[in-house]
């Protein structure tokens, strides 16, 4: 009987795993390894099993986000207007892939489907500022202006 109750409560606990991950990410901005280990202990799971869930969903981040978030639009209009080239430039400039953050913790790069700024294609949004018709040559200047902002 005692064992039975334990099994039920363990299953119940596990059903709240995703909610717990949300909670931590909201508080910390990402899922720190120590928190993953702590949640695993709390849920009666292995850390690997929690990591499996955390890496399955795009929503969860395992590294702290950069200070500034760059969203490069790859919607139809931007795509036609060469968003790939823009993205390549950003990747080379910052040495990161989409979904990653720079080592200095300054930028996080995302690719999004459509920003609704098709008239300004190719477009990108840094934090809350929309940058339109970004030529690769302008890119360095724009990024530097955010670096200076700190």
């Amino acid at each position: 009987m005692g064992v039975q109750t334990e099994v039920v409560s363990a299953t119940e606990k596990r059903s709240t795993l995703i909610a717990r991950l949300h909670e931590v990410q909201e508080r910390e901005g990402y899922l720190p390894a120590v928190e993953i280990a702590a949640i695993a202990k709390e849920m009666g799971m292995s850390a690997a099993q929690v990591m499996g869930v955390a890496t399955f969903y795009n929503h969860f981040r395992l590294r702290p986000p950069g200070k500034h978030s760059i969203k490069v639009c790859d919607g139809t209009a931007c795509h036609v207007k060469g968003s790939n080239k823009l993205l390549d430039r950003i990747e080379a400039e910052l040495n990161i892939q989409p979904g990653e953050s720079t080592e200095d913790g300054m930028f996080t790069l995302h690719v999004v489907a459509c920003l609704g700024a098709c008239s300004m294609a190719p477009a990108m949004v840094i934090d809350d500022d929309v940058h339109g018709r970004v030529s690769p040559r302008q890119l360095k200047r724009i990024l530097n202006s955010y670096r200076r902002r700190q």
Partner: peptide
Amino acid sequence: AVACITPLKRGFDTTIGVAFGEGIGDSE
């Protein structure tokens, strides 16, 4: 009852791996 390896990530990127560290030698 160890569960040190598990499927990580999703779709084409899915891989069997450990929670932290480089590989199974760094795990439980």
